[in-house]
């Protein structure tokens, strides 16, 4: 079985974020990056398939030079090889542009399963997975919380609202966009990391995968990002802990919540 795992490198969860001077994205200088959390679970799910039998796990990412560190981590965790695509024209790529690049990568090889995270921690679109599946003309399931591979198909549980689960049977090849918490993500071992530098990491330009800047030009651009201004209406309670508790219960009752 051949598996592609799509990873995104996002700002570290503890990074102190500041809005950049043009107001359309954060300042990326001097902050740490890490693998998008959803993608960690996707990678772990792929590595479990590898552990269970014969499978090759390929990880792919798009981004500037800094992303190779995340690829090394993925290789250290057990992925077999990595693909890194970058072109300056991808700096403002939208979900469709990213999906087109990943589709071009995926089309170069015949993957049985494409795993990706449900969405990215930094932009939360949750669009790349479904778009990529569409471009590859393969079925997909999002918010995957359980997979069970058998006889060329996969039984998938998908998370719905209110704790309901949807179960479906999907033929391979397919794309699964994974929810967090579905497995326990392994740590890369020391030996794994030391061996990671010997594993192949292919750097590709857009032209290597038959694309150019025009093909991935964004149709969607961010107008601005901002921190919501402090609003009115906050009611600050004061007094001892007991007094505050009493006032709070009163408020909750007043709002009809109790």
């Amino acid at each position: 079985m051949k598996i592609l795992v799509c990873l995104k490198q996002v700002p570290h969860k503890d990074a102190r974020l500041e809005i950049g001077s043009d107001g359309t994205w954060i300042k990326e200088d001097g902050i740490k990056f890490e693998i998008n959390d959803y993608d960690n679970y996707a990678l772990e799910e792929a590595l479990r398939l590898k552990d269970a039998g014969e499978a090759e796990v390929v990880v792919a990412t798009i981004g500037p030079d800094r992303v190779t560190q995340s690829l090394r981590t993925a290789l250290g965790m057990g992925a077999d090889r990595a693909i890194h695509v970058w072109d300056d024209s991808l700096a403002n790529a939208d979900s469709l542009g990213i999906a087109k690049v990943l589709a071009a990568v995926a089309k170069e090889e015949n993957f049985d399963v494409v795993f990706c995270g449900l969405m990215s921690d930094d932009s939360n679109y949750a669009m790349v997975g479904p778009m990529l599946a569409q471009l590859l003309d393969i079925p997909h399931v999002t918010a995957v919380v359980k997979t069970d591979f058998e006889n060329g198909a996969v039984k998938v549980e998908k998370e719905l609202e209110g704790g309901t689960l949807e179960v479906s049977q999907v033929p391979l090849p397919c794309l699964l966009a994974v929810q967090t918490g579905i497995n326990e993500v392994r740590y890369a071992s020391l030996k794994g990391i030391m061996q990671a530098k010997k594993k192949p990491l292919d750097k590709k330009a857009l032209s290597d995968i038959g694309l150019d800047g025009a093909a991935v030009a964004p149709k969607l651009s961010i107008e601005k990002i901002y921190t919501p201004p402090k609003g009115e209406g906050a009611n600050l309670l004061s007094g001892s802990a007991d007094e505050i508790a009493t006032q709070m219960v009163g408020k909750i009752k007043e709002l009809g919540l109790l």
Partner: peptide
């Protein structure tokens, strides 16, 4: 630190 060493640091 090399890329691998940075990766180990993270983990």
């Amino acid at each position: 630190w090399t890329e691998e060493q940075e990766a180990f640091k993270d983990v």
